[in-house]
């Protein structure tokens, strides 16, 4: 089966900087692919290459099996997109901006403008000039422009920027509805794993232009690491005792001296039997004042993936 979106050894360089480095993506139809990375990781550059806005230095991009080529504009008939913050013509109204997109896309059905205004709850603002819209409503308009033609592929670069929590939930529901009921393939970029994890069927972490990890969205929780968090009066001594007992810890001496960082033991044995740790420390004369099992949150997981990649790269 032909993938909805794919890239083969996609690379973009700017002088010495490799913004995207041999990126290979393969996104199936109806999938919501979360494209996760820090600022400057290469997310937007990748999306721009998928949209033909910039030309790859090497490698290829495919949409619906067709290689992207600036002279074949028909590729983008089935593609909707938001590249960073969406902008519209400020002197025109919401409806006029949508009419422009409808006409440029050659959509004969004039009712689609009413449909999308209704779908994105823009009715109250349809006669308002875009320059007078709030950031959130301007973002809604951007999403409306992206899906007015009922695309089969959506490329969304941080689409929830500027939206309030209710707006974020609305967009999330909309995207899930489009994927589940209309088979729309969504590539959504973000630097927030918790947001992405709520909708993505698959997640790819990009760092320094490389895809460093691919995770099945449903199995993300299994990837989160548990650790035993400890605190006490003399953390350096506690650390030394645990180290001698063979436990794996992350805290550095400097951090412990500052006092604010607790000790974290990642060892599975410690996590599963914290009472053994407590007993060991009490016997050594350093009873813990805090002892709890903690699961890393999604942001911590995301940062850990990046740290692990950087560790491997530097070896």
């Amino acid at each position: 089966m032909i993938e909805a979106i794919s890239t083969v050894d996609l690379t973009k360089t700017y002088g010495d900087l490799r913004a995207v480095d041999n990126l290979n993506l393969s996104i199936g139809r109806g999938e919501i692919f979360g494209f996760l990375g820090l600022n400057g990781a290469g997310k937007t550059t990748t999306i721009r290459m998928l949209l033909g806005m910039i030309t790859p230095t090497s490698g290829y991009c495919y949409l619906n099996g067709e290689r992207i080529n600036k002279s074949n504009m028909d590729i983008w008939n089935d593609v909707g997109y938001i590249v960073e913050t969406p902008y519209s013509y400020p002197e025109l109204t919401v409806r006029e901006n949508l009419e422009i997109v409808r006409r440029l896309r050659g959509i004969e059905d004039r009712d689609c403008v009413d449909w999308i205004i209704d779908k994105l709850k823009l009715g109250e603002y349809e006669s308002r000039r875009v320059e007078h819209l709030s950031l959130g409503n301007a973002q809604r308009l951007g999403i409306a422009k992206a899906i007015i033609h009922r695309p089969k592929i959506l490329l969304l670069d941080e689409p929830t920027n500027g939206l309030d929590p209710a707006g974020i939930v609305e967009v999330r529901r909309l995207l899930m509805d489009l994927a589940e009921n209309e088979g729309v393939t969504v590539l959504i970029s973000s630097h927030k794993l918790d947001e992405i994890s709520k909708i993505a069927t698959n997640i790819g972490i990009i760092h320094e232009g490389r895809l460093i990890k691919e995770i099945d969205g449903g199995g993300l929780q299994d990837q989160l690491r548990k650790s035993l968090v400890l605190d006490g009066r003399n953390k350096l001594a506690m650390r030394s005792i645990l180290f001698q007992a063979g436990y794996d810890m992350s805290a550095k001496d400097g951090d412990l001296r500052k006092g604010s960082h607790p000790l974290r033991v990642h060892d599975e044995g410690a996590v599963n039997a914290p009472e053994k740790i407590a007993t060991l420390l009490v016997k050594a004369g350093h009873p813990p004042t805090l002892l709890k099992v903690e699961e890393e949150d999604l942001e911590m997981y995301f940062l850990r993936m990046i740290e692990e990649y950087e560790g491997i790269r530097n070896e």
């Binding site: 949209l51 806005m53 504009m73 983008w76 913050t85 997109v101």
Partner: peptide, 15 residues
């Protein structure tokens, strides 16, 4: 300057 160029470039209309 209005950053609307992005919307124009990936439309199925010849540049």
């Amino acid at each position: 300057s209005d950053r609307t160029i992005r919307d124009l470039l990936a439309l199925p209309v010849s540049r």
